[in-house]
Amino acid sequence: MGIVSPGFRGRRRPAGATELPPGQYLTEDFPVLSAGPTPRVPLDRWELLVTTETDQQYRWTWSELMSLPTESPVVDLHCVTKWSKLATAWEGVSLDALLGGVETAAEYALVSSYGGYTTNLPLADLLDGRAWIAFRYDGRDLVPEHGGPARLLVPHLYLWKSAKWVRGIRLLVRDRPGFWETAGYHDYGDPWREQRYQGD
């Protein structure tokens, strides 16, 4: 146990409430974390580009993405700035559907965004029904502040891995750190193991 702060009681969660990852607290709001201004991406110029380790490219325009089967995951979000939000409802296309036809032996992915943001994760974490390209939140089109028109959604990792304004996924044989990962945040970012910063 850490040093006790005299007189600190805190706001406990009721017994039986859903357990949160260590160090997280519950919020009903949907806070915004981004490193810069919010990019605006017109749909007629939107595309998603997957590039393999052999420089093969796979592209989807917005209407191509919309023609794919969608899923409606309801997931808990955990942000490294300590808030968690439970049971958020999304609609999107599973990455299994997008990457299923991509030929690759890569083990890592570097995801990039309109606006220049990047984040890295093992390719396996994008597969097996655990990641989506999401474009609707809570029954509405995803607003730009939260990553619209489309963002990556990988809810089992801290939310910075769920790149907003997603534009490309580069498949790599060797891991390459992204934006926050280069700035001292953890390479993997599992909230249940509290992997916030390098060395955690």
Partner: peptide
């Protein structure tokens, strides 16, 4: 507004204290 005024988005660094985000 800074971007609309012509500032390069890559030179605008932000820190949001939260939590009241839409």
């Amino acid at each position: 507004t800074l971007v609309a005024l012509g500032h390069d988005p890559a030179r605008v660094r932000t820190e949001r204290f939260g939590p009241t985000g839409g």
